[in-house]
Design a protein around this nucleic acid. Structure first.
Lengths: 164, 164
DNA sequence: GGATTAAAGTTTCAAATGAAACTACTTTCT
DNA sequence: AGAAAGTAGTTTCATTTGAAACTTTAATCC
């Protein structure tokens, strides 16, 4: 009579569960997992580069998409405009980012990595990849693909549930 | 030449990636996913029961483990003692929790749900299970088991990486 | 064309967070 | 037993966060 992820599917229908087993509750597990991962990455980036996660995301995005504006970054990095504004301010101050007023719309600024920003990114990338590889070290390529698939589906479902 | 989760395993060895594709970076995906889920659950609990996530976890734990102390709750709920102290204070104020001084150690208090606390829990459980079921609606029992397995392994690995 | 509405980013302000200090007790050591 | 060290839980305080208000510029409406 194993419960899997608290999912009722897995328990017979006429004995509805009266308890919720927290350590198997999917939202709890995801929060705990992502918390552990984020904390250790945040500590690493902060210690080595004095970068927050928001700054790190923005640098990573601008590496492959130079010239994005704050508004465009928001959905790509899952950051709100306040966080972006603050992260950009810090990145400009630390000389890693440059703002160029957008031709034809003086409200927004296109963002570009400076040389310093690009070398920061060059240092950051292998570190991030290492970390991901360590997380997935015990996973076979097939399992990685399956995990990828699961995450995509959960993400899509969670997005739907946002509205509903 | 598909990248899977940015994992280097999936790209040939002599073309190391110079970019990091954020939307496929596992830590980012987990943070985004857990953020979406937590926000929608938090909104629901707050609106319907005036409960925070921390309070919710404590209530859920005490349902199956009456008499836990704050210190015992901490690792089970992944909460620090400050959060627990505050959540317990609110739960006591709202009449859902009762503190009883532990026989033989007057520093700690054993925590118990009151009748009100138990009926809150009884309302909360099906809601939580519904939510989890909705998230997993498109998953077959085998897939759910596999997801469970993946999460366990990632959790264990992440815990190891905390120290290292 | 001037007024109105909207959009991009920034700033402000109030609430949430969590590390460190603190209080009240308990255990250990001599 | 009494001092020293340790633990449970609370409080304080400084930082982080994000919603709402604001500023500047652009688009739309009459």
């Amino acid at each position: 009579m194993d419960r899997v992820l608290n999912n009722v599917k897995a328990v017979s229908m006429n004995e509805m569960q009266r308890t919720l087993y927290l350590p198997r509750f999917l939202p709890y597990r995801l929060t705990k997992l992502s918390g552990m991962i984020s904390r250790s990455l945040a500590a690493k980036y902060s210690a080595l580069f004095d970068l927050t996660i928001a700054e790190w995301r923005i640098v990573a995005l601008l590496g492959s998409n130079p010239g994005l504006t704050a508004r465009e970054i928001a959905p790509l990095a899952s950051l709100d405009k306040v966080s972006i504004s603050r992260a950009v301010e810090r990145l400009v101050k630390s000389g890693r980012l440059e703002k160029r007023t957008v031709e034809g719309d003086r409200r927004s600024a296109a963002l570009f990595l400076t040389q310093a920003g690009q070398s920061t990114l060059a240092e950051i990338i292998p570190l991030a990849q290492d970390y991901e590889n360590q997380l997935l070290a015990e996973f076979s390529p097939e399992e990685i693909e399956q995990l990828d698939n699961f995450l995509n589906r959960l993400d899509a479902t969670a997005e739907d549930l946002q509205e509903g």
